[in-house]
Design a protein around this nucleic acid. Sequence first.
DNA 1: TACTGATGTCATCTA
DNA 2: TATAGATGACATCAG
Length: 645
Amino acid sequence: MQIAKKYFTEGLIQLTILLSLIGVRVDIDSYLSGYYTPLIDINLGPSSAYIQTPFHILRDTLDGYGVHPKCTELDNFFASRRLLDEVRTLGSLRFPTQLNAWLVHQVSTPDSADCGPPSSNTSETNSGLESPGNGASDDCEHLPDSGQEVCPTTPELGEGPCSTDACGFLKEASVCIENDVKDEEEPALVTQLAHSSTLEQEGLLDGITALSDPAQHLSPTIDIDQHWSSLLSLSVTDLDDLDSFVTDTDVSAISQDVSLQDAMVTNIGAFDVTLERAVSRPVTQQQRTLLRLDSLASSNSGTSPGMAALPFSSVCNLPGNVSSQTTLGGCLDEAVFDQINQLGLESLDTIDTQLMGCLQNIDPQVLEDLDSDSGLSLESSCEGPVSPGSSEMSSSSSSSYCEDEYGATGYSSEADSVPSKGLMDYTTTWSSTHLSESVWHDHSYSSSGFVNPPSVTLPHKGIQEDTFSDDSGPRLEERELSRDELRARAMCIPFSVLEIVNMPVEEFLDVLDSHGFSPEQVALLRDIRRRGKNKLAAQNCRKRKLDAITGLQEEVERLQVQRDRLLREKQLTAKTMGAVGQQIQQLTRDVLAHLRDDSGQPLNPERFTLQCGANGRVVVQPVRRPAVSASTGNKTDKRKKEKKQ
DNA sequence: TACTGATGTCATCTA
DNA sequence: TATAGATGACATCAG
């Protein structure tokens, strides 16, 4: 609706222009005045923040009312105002003058435009050189807001003009009064245009106009529209410069905010920059793993730029990276990124075989340490050879699991498509698939064990230390097996704890139904599954709790810093307020010292004070005595007594 | 030997 | 109703 009104207004104005060209005078002020809500309701006087602009002066003029300086419709208003002024100019005698002024400005504008993006200061200087009166008119227009606050000669104060407040605005007020007096001699339309120009200048170039030059206050006779158009053109160029500046700044900021993983996928150049910064930083022990990742990825990207977008599994065994990848951490780090790449960039059946081979060469003990963050993930290793208590099926399933998972043959697609058709096939299908999906691809905190494997401390539980170490004897293995593992062995359950926990519920129920387990075995399988899932959940929960605590601690520190800063600002403000208060008192004493009472005696500052009213009028008032409050207190006491009675 | 941190387990609630 | 996840509470163990 608003847009429709806008277009209707524009169309109406254009029609008015056409009518004016053929000699028909059309007044659309009534329409505009009805379209834009008057400012009277929000004009709260000199004390209002809205009064910082001279809109209130225009309120009583022909078309000055209607728009608040902070109103979002201001642009529409000015667009309409410009068109309206043109319409008026068509039918007024000022048309040639205004046209000449515009042409003068048109000559000066290309100069500034040719010099590249002109700064606002330069533009202001040019305009001032062309017509010194422009700046004067600008300031003159700026000052009337103070001018309204200036009261005429106060009877109590005797002679001379005074400003609304007793402190140092007297000079500006006096200048403004002079300008106002001169402005009264100008045609009313010029005054309106001057105010209109002021409004737009304040909106566009607030703070640019220099107020310090007193000479500029004394030339109110120039054409304000000329200056307005100059400022408008300058503002456009300034805005262009600002846009270009902001664009450049944003680009640089974005390039700096590229995260590591985003850069790996999207931008090689930015990735290198990120890596360089990461490497250049002083690192802590916990960051070394990431730094190793960074160096690895950096070398990869440097060797083959296209590799940055490839899964890390395929980058793992590049010849140039042997030194870093032969270590366990390198392979494990690659496994992490390979996991990430699989999640987002490739399907499960494209797991790189080189990474699998790399993982096969890992010492099982070390791999166990890697998984030691989670008890279940510990048991996810190739446990077949070290589970003597399990059945042959279990052993074969585990070994086949390792071979299938690390082998070069694809397995996931087959695993997804082939239903359970026997224990052997079952374990070789779902275990590999869901191990990678449920554990390796687990998005929960349990996967964090893969991120920092070298720094993981060995849990105290024996099962989590060296369950699958090759050098440990059968006695040690039995001793270090988990309770559930031992129970599963005792019950002849041909599944590992990890398999039981990580298999989907449908398959788990299928296993329970299709293998003819006894009720005790079924109960044990359910308990193992429940405990295993709850174990992971507990780990996640504790991790979240620690993260929450860490976050709260950081927030506390941040709030403490903010509190200190606010306290400092408060103290500084109190000092400033005290200084200003002392200045006001001193000025009050000075003013009162120059005033005389009826008997011709100076006013006693102890008995009189200066009060600034809401309308800007300064009056001398006697100092309120405590007796006044006492009287009011008596009144309240009387009222209380009356109420009691 | 008491304390502390890490971990596992159970009970309970919620989706 | 079954299941999974979250979480508090408790037990256990190692340092």
